[in-house]
Design a protein around this nucleic acid. Structure first.
Lengths: 115, 115
DNA sequence: GTTGCTTATCGTATAGTTACGATATACATT
DNA sequence: AATGTATATCGTAACTATACGATAAGCAAC
């Protein structure tokens, strides 16, 4: 790259883009859904659920943790994960506002282009 | 990669992941918002709006078109773009179902892990 | 037909993502 | 202390994304 231009964009949009990137792989979607269904999971539970190697699942968990959508805690020899409710709610809200805004405009003003 | 495992995941999740990937860059978020606000745009309008070169904007538009969130049409020497309302609505709906499901579970069953 | 304008595509460089196996680390249990 | 279990991290490979400039392609207007 010539250099990333990410920081030339509004912070709010950068944040929404990052959250969406967290959902841009089906494994991470599955992980979040499983964590929601079970309340909490150890890494090994998720490995059984997913068609991926243990190290790969651990990597996806790390990504979700860094983005802030899950929390992790050491529990003896295991690691216990759960969804970070507060940040997840922020994400849902930000996405909702974006979607609402667009849907509203699309209703007001029909798209004139036909392909 | 050892080989992509994307197709070992449920089609529904792969689709949602792809739509989210479309929003995983702030330029594409901006493009969608601008298209919604103005109803339609030519590529050059978007280039003025964004801190990116013309070829880069064209690339982002191509990506959005391939994913199905925007439509494009040739208009003389220009290209006219607008949001693909139908697919955008599908995306919003799929995302909403995912978010709802998770929020519901998070309310039922508090996350026990604290970090 | 030539000029000018707009956009797409090509070539390319760099950075980031996804995936795995192997290994290290950390704790429990014997 | 030694062994076993669970997970994180390292090393690595392949692929994908981001970005730009340069060029090609398409159309309008002269």
């Amino acid at each position: 790259m010539a250099l990333s231009r990410i920081n030339d964009f509004p912070e709010k949009d950068v944040q929404l883009a990052e959250w969406c990137k967290a959902l841009s792989h089906p494994a991470r979607i599955e992980i979040l859904r499983t964590l929601a269904n079970r309340g909490e999971c150890i890494c090994g539970d998720l490995v059984l659920d997913l068609p991926l190697a243990q190290s790969t699942v651990s990597q996806h968990l790390k990504a979700l943790k860094e983005i802030g959508l899950v929390q992790g805690e050491v529990d003896g020899p295991r690691s216990l994960y759960c969804i970070d409710k507060k940040n997840f709610a922020k994400f849902i809200k930000a996405f909702g506002l974006f979607g609402e805004l667009i849907n509203q405009k699309l209703n007001d003003e029909a798209c004139k282009v036909k392909l």
